[in-house]
Amino acid sequence: MAHLILASSSPRRKALLEQLGLDFEVIRPDIDESPLQHESVSNYVERLTREKAQAILHQYPQAIVLAADTSLGLDDKIIGKPESKAHAFEIWAALSGRWHDVFSGICVATASDFFSEVVQTRVEFQTLSDAEMQSYWSTGEPLGKAGAYAIQGIAAQYIPRIEGSYSNVVGLPLFETVQLLKRVKAIG
């Protein structure tokens, strides 16, 4: 079987993929993750996963490359990772008391095949008070997370409902990932 590479430095994606019992290597691709002007969240995450996969496949042409990217969408805007405490508070104020969408692009690529998919999950976020925002920020958990929260962590208490894949909100939709890996014979 070909060498499987996870083209991501996300510890959450690594842990999710480990749940499947797969043997893989983690290599972080070096690509520009800036959104294009007027790019939808769905198109953005799919483009990034394809670019990540291509970057790693260029270095390791005999490998099977799995790439993923996750972003939030609210009012047709891409909500990324917080750049500061003030930015995190802006994100939470926008999400508070509303539903938003979490999009993950996944791509499995080999020298001869290129498959990608975008998975969407709807998430309801409770209204957060200033005290709750301060408390959550002080945990450090929001750093480096799309939407400034981690559903698998402390933020679970702020999310009354989701519609769709839980693992997608964590960062890697496992069902869809397995289906793509089967297409390239990476798993049985």
Rank of each mutant, 00 (worst) to 15 (best):
E83Q: 01
Y166N: 15
P61Q: 13
S135W: 12
Q157G: 13
Y44S: 02
G80R: 10
Q126G: 11
A186R: 02
F89T: 03
Q179V: 02
E141F: 08
T127G: 13
T127Q: 15
D69L: 07
E18F: 06
L172I: 12
I162N: 07
T121W: 11
A93E: 15
L20K: 08
L16Q: 10
R47H: 01
I79E: 12
G171P: 10
W99E: 08
P61L: 12
S135T: 15
A68P: 07
D113L: 09
F114I: 02
R28V: 08
A109L: 07
Q19G: 05
L95F: 14
K145H: 08
A86I: 03
E117C: 05
V45H: 07
V41I: 14
R28M: 12
Q120I: 15
Y166D: 14
S40A: 06
W92Y: 08
V108G: 00
F175N: 10
K52A: 01
S8F: 03
P35R: 09
S84Y: 00
D75T: 14
Q19A: 08
S135R: 15
A155E: 03
G171A: 08
L16A: 07
S9G: 14
S167D: 13
V26C: 08
A94N: 14
F114Q: 10
A67I: 03
V65A: 06
S84Q: 01
E33Q: 08
D113I: 06
E117G: 04
V118R: 12
A68S: 10
F175Q: 10
S8N: 02
G164C: 08
C107W: 05
E46L: 05
I79V: 13
G171T: 09
A88P: 01
P142I: 04
H58N: 12
A131K: 13
Q134R: 12
K52L: 01
S112W: 11
S34H: 09
V26G: 03
Y60D: 04
G171S: 09
H38K: 13
